[in-house]
Design a binder for these strands. Sequence first.
DNA 1: ATATCCAATAATATCGATTTTCTGCTCGGT
DNA 2: ACCGAGCAGAAAATCGATATTATTGGATAT
Lengths: 226, 226
Amino acid sequence: MSIQTQIDPAQEPSATQRAYLAIRRMILIGELPPGEKLKIERLRTILDMGGSPIREALTLLVSDLLVERLDQRGFRTAEISPQNFSEILNLRCHLEKMALRESLTNADHAWEDKLVISHHRMMREPRTNVEPFEALHKAFHMNLLSACHSPVLLKFCNQLYDLNIRYRYLAGKALNYSKRDIGKEHTDIMNAAVDRDADKACHLLLDHYRNTGAFLEKHFVTEAAE
Amino acid sequence: MSIQTQIDPAQEPSATQRAYLAIRRMILIGELPPGEKLKIERLRTILDMGGSPIREALTLLVSDLLVERLDQRGFRTAEISPQNFSEILNLRCHLEKMALRESLTNADHAWEDKLVISHHRMMREPRTNVEPFEALHKAFHMNLLSACHSPVLLKFCNQLYDLNIRYRYLAGKALNYSKRDIGKEHTDIMNAAVDRDADKACHLLLDHYRNTGAFLEKHFVTEAAE
DNA sequence: ATATCCAATAATATCGATTTTCTGCTCGGT
DNA sequence: ACCGAGCAGAAAATCGATATTATTGGATAT
């Protein structure tokens, strides 16, 4: 068995899997705007496959809250709203706090290594490569929580993360965090985590989220006023 | 337009919907035991429909954590474990506490009426009618939270509730809450909620869950030892 | 002019058949 | 006797076609 096979056990992802990832990406980055009707026929031609895997992928996305199903009337991308945004933010803060505390309780050396590596990778990626950077950013945040032994909680955090990042993409270039040093915020969070200082790490993490949230909310208001 | 149409807008549920409800029920009540292979062909004959709605229903159940998908190898019902059980219980306590507090903040008269009605309906249903009683029991608990303005949080609570009730069914007849007066516990919770005493209501609710949880956990241990 | 009904159209939901992938077993080699 | 390659048989995944169901635009009656 080659190393290649070990690294890539899913040689050829199923059509459903491909469709799921492709549609999910299009929704997250805003290529499919909120409320957009998702016609099977159109997606079929774009992704070049039959209707069944498309429908299955959309069904998976319904549970991620990225797609809404209208009985007998097909699918559409989830709507956005300021209420929904602040709901996501608030829930995220609560759940990630729980997860982070639990994670720090169980944290071992292997976890610490993973965390440092993902931090490093994130820092070296230019923020202008938006999609690659965001992937590494998410990896860093999820690694923080990864020693938490509650798969369900982690799943929720992961879901909420994606819902939030969608708003980030939608706000798009309009965002410039001029007054903040995001890099330092991440480093501080990591250091507190490595020190197993749960109170400090939680405090820093939530501030990090709330600051970003405030930025986005402001942007929301501005846009709505236009 | 007749009243009938208004009351029952979904005259004939789609095959997917029917399959979803039927399979979900079979898993919750333990008719499909944990870890069971879910063959499409078999479900097709049982539910008398094509493979597509079955697959879609199963996909929906994956997101409910009641079914696991094995890439290219079909579906099976979710496994159970003591770890999973206590994880569910713990998360449930945290999330329902949040939801209940928020709900009591927003609670109005209409909410109060709904709560009282659902409590009454639950109390008058004999506990020996297991499935109808459980439906009313769930309705009561969800009504407690229903004034909470966070759809996502409510969705999570709902999901966790179902995961938990599955364990309850699996433990089955073995359960007798001889030493407890479940009826009184519910009434006390309701009264605290009606009084908008959030601290008391949360305290009572969590005790209610944790007591049941301890019962079930004991049962788990006993069964594992057999 | 407006609302209502109907027909044509478009899209979804579902089915049956086909293709692909897995699984267990047999057979030959060591 | 044990291990692994190769071969059915079973099951899953996917496709293309059909049956159902919504939607739209226009004709008719008020």
